[in-house]
Nucleic acid binder design. Structure first.
Lengths: 262, 262
DNA sequence: ATAAAAATATGCTGAAAAACATAAAAACCA
DNA sequence: TGGTTTTTATGTTTTTCAGCATATTTTTAT
């Protein structure tokens, strides 16, 4: 009894709010995961809309659904690419192992986007790994089937060319940011990028993503210590309000400025 | 007369050899540039082989030949993409301006490769600039025509998808190298990359490219001073033989090792 | 041919960020 | 529930590299 009272006393209002937000976030995430198989096929519209009737039938026949736990790995560097992966719900990181065991996240995906075909099309084994940030549902389709579709469907092929073109642009920008900006600029850019990708919660300030400091570091090319330090600095400068993994952007203009000047 | 003797005396055997190699290199470069218009169309085979007869006729009707001097700029960041560029002879760099006016070279092209369509396909203005390392000949084709071909030619579209897939892989690898390797590892990698791209001269040691230290620096994400310093170090370690812009790889295994461990 | 400009070489200094260390807080789990 | 592991926080030291200065060499322009 006494212990219980003590525990309750220890939780500050801010902490209570954090726990509340955290639970709401988990609920939101889980809710997205309740799709039935037919729902899921419908969700593949970015691809399936471009397919012929025959190809849609092939999709129906070959698609498989896979669920991944938090931090579970989908494929690793060196693996032979076998499937086109479509992200139905959850969040996925594509990362590459660096020299000192340090990882660099090269892409993050949101529903409904697809990945995992590049290496196959380039005739390589995977040079990156893919893992789930949070509980995630994927559709997987044999990549040979996807290749066949590409070889017979102009619309799909042109869509993929446009996707790749956008991706190359992002990577070009990224190279310069990661190599030339300073710690503060790189973290600022990553936070803005997370906001763009996963959006905000109802308050229009809280980023709809819960990343560990280590993941933020891997995204921003720095050590975990420096990610922690820089977030603390932004917090004490009232640019962010940081509450565990819940990050609220208080002064977006300032953050953009820091991101821009490096 | 006396002066003449003095001048001759000042040129060491090594220097004479350097001048000889330099002149031979310039001759080689110039020779590649003597193509007639019909030769040039023939040289576009990587694309034209994939075109239908009708498309080939359109190519013939629309293609233009452009010559660029050393360091001349083809397009700049912010420009509206208008042409597909095919490199017929010479060497081209694609680069991006960084924060402190420092450039990062994100791609180098050799004949016959094509570029300049990515931004258009991504529906953007150019986010990179293109310039000639040395006297260069290009074919340019209206990018709208290229887009039309893509929308009606499966083979071409699939070829472009494969090209983009390879490119994305290179960029992913590049991000990790440039951010995580040390000076020595980055320069080593750039030199090996130049060797892969432009090949060697007859001696099978000299890289068939003459890059300024500043360009090597822009390729390797470092200051010009550090590119100079590191090349000197490699030279005194007998990994390279450096003679102005002529770089001979003496110990490729060692260079690969340095590139690998960072 | 000669002056001016650009590129290369090298040393020195200081800033930025990694590496290391340690403690506190939070999450996990048997 | 208490103990263990992981994550976050923060201070200190060390390494790497950019920035600057200056001299020399090479290239370019006139």
């Amino acid at each position: 009894m006494l212990k219980n009272i003590k525990t309750t006393k220890n939780i500050s209002p801010i902490e209570q709010k954090r726990i509340h937000l955290q639970e709401k976030f988990i609920t939101m995430t889980k809710r997205q995961d309740n799709s039935t198989p037919s729902d899921i096929i419908a969700k593949l519209s970015p691809i399936s809309n471009l397919l012929t009737e025959e190809q849609k039938a092939e999709l129906q026949a070959s698609v498989e659904i896979k669920k991944y736990k938090k931090n579970e790995i989908m494929y690793e560097e060196g693996d032979v690419p076998q499937y086109l992966h479509c992200l139905i719900s959850g969040k996925v990181k594509i990362y590459k192992e660096g020299v000192g065991g340090r990882n660099q996240i090269v892409h993050i995906f949101k529903p409904v986007e697809f990945f995992g075909f590049r290496a196959y099309m380039a005739n390589e084994n995977y040079i990156t790994s893919a893992a789930a940030f949070e509980p995630t549902t994927l559709c997987i389709i044999p990549v040979t089937l996807f290749e066949k579709w590409l070889s017979e469907n102009l619309q799909l092929a042109n869509y993929v060319i446009r996707l790749c073109s956008v991706e190359i642009g992002i990577l070009n920008r990224h190279i310069v940011s990661l190599t030339q900006k300073h710690l503060r600029g790189r973290i600022a850019e990553s936070l803005l990028f997370l906001k763009e990708t996963y959006g905000m919660e109802e308050d229009n300030q809280t980023i709809s993503a819960r990343f560990s400091r280590a993941d933020l570091a891997d995204l921003s090319n720095m050590t975990t210590s420096n990610a922690i330090r820089t977030l603390s600095a932004f917090s004490s400068e009232n640019i962010l309000e940081v509450n565990g993994r819940i990050i609220k952007i208080l002064d977006e203009d300032q953050l953009k400025k820091i991101s821009k000047i490096g």
